[in-house]
Simulated scan of single mutants.
Amino acid sequence: MDKAIAAAQRGDLTSARAIAEIGLQSGSADTLSVHAFLGMVCARLQDLPAATRHLAEAHALQPRDVTIACNLVAILMDQDRDAEALAVATAELAQADKSLRVARYRAFLAQKIEQFPEAVEAYELVLADHPDDFECWNNLGNARAGTGDYKGAVEALRRAITLDPRAAPTRLNLADACSLSTRSTTPKRN
């Protein structure tokens, strides 16, 4: 692995990949480290299928490793494989990750593929540690609206506007949430 790392540090990613692959095939190297390394080298070489394969192997060997998980999530997102990326960014891993990187990925991905309850849970996890995160409040408002919780959406969006009163898109989101809230509580006439 030392030779592969040295080649990567010199910028010779093709040689780094070849050396690491030989080490992997020979079984003489730490499989987890080699797969994680190859995942990143292949990503830099723009070989996303190989990067995905190696990072998935590393993740399977060490599913609680936040860095490997986040690297795999990013590679999957680059390929528009959002549902698979969300499956890597589990709620359990998000709660165990003190850096909140997994929770942020999870929130974004869940909202993007319209799994709004999961998005709400992940945004709330981030906000518990970062209550002044304007973007998370805005996104939480949108995710809550996606679940039909318009009152909660309005509350979150108002908090976002308090944190950044100049954010025009948030004001539009708030107007939409207020409109939906009013429609959902207004009795229908026959």
Rank of each mutant, 00 (worst) to 15 (best):
P49D: 10
A122N: 06
A74I: 02
L55Q: 14
V41E: 10
D80F: 01
L86H: 10
E57W: 05
T52M: 10
C70D: 09
S99N: 09
D97H: 00
W137K: 01
A83H: 13
E121H: 05
E118A: 15
A128R: 13
H130E: 15
A89P: 09
V88Q: 09
A96S: 15
A60Q: 08
C42H: 12
R64Q: 12
A51G: 07
Q111D: 14
R44K: 15
E124L: 05
F134P: 00
E118L: 12
L86V: 04
D78A: 13
A50H: 04
V126M: 06
A107Y: 07
M77V: 13
D133W: 05
S99I: 07
E114Q: 14
A103D: 03
F116L: 03
M77D: 05
D132C: 01
A107L: 04
F108C: 00
L109H: 01
L125C: 06
I75V: 15
R101P: 00
L48K: 10
A43F: 11
L45E: 07
H130L: 08
W137A: 06
Y105G: 01
G141A: 07
A50D: 08
A143P: 03
A43P: 01
K112V: 03
V66Q: 09
T52W: 04
A110Q: 09
A60F: 02
E114Y: 03
F108T: 09
A50W: 02
L93S: 06
S99C: 10
A143F: 08
V126I: 12
Y105R: 01
A96I: 01
D78K: 12
H54V: 08
L125A: 12
I75K: 01
D65V: 05
V126E: 05
Q115V: 13
A119S: 12
V88P: 11
H59A: 13
Q46W: 07
Q46Y: 10
L55E: 14
E114K: 13
S99W: 09
L140H: 04
L48T: 11
L76I: 04
L125V: 02
A87S: 15
R106K: 06
L86R: 06
Q111Y: 09
D149H: 08
G141V: 07
C70T: 15
L48F: 15
T147I: 10
D78L: 08
D47P: 04
E114S: 11
L100T: 11
L86I: 06
R53E: 14
G141E: 08
L127C: 11
Y123P: 02
D82T: 12
A87H: 10
V126K: 03
N142T: 12
N142Y: 07
M77R: 13
D78M: 09
H54D: 12
R64T: 12
V102L: 03
R81G: 06
H59T: 11
P49L: 05
Q95F: 01
D129E: 13
A94M: 03
A50K: 14
A145R: 14
A56C: 02
P49S: 10
E118H: 11
D149W: 07
Q115L: 14
N142P: 00
D129C: 02
D149P: 02
L109T: 02
D65R: 02
V126A: 10
E92G: 13
D78Y: 00
D47M: 10
L100R: 15
M40D: 15
N71S: 11
D132V: 03
D97A: 02
A60T: 08
Q115S: 11
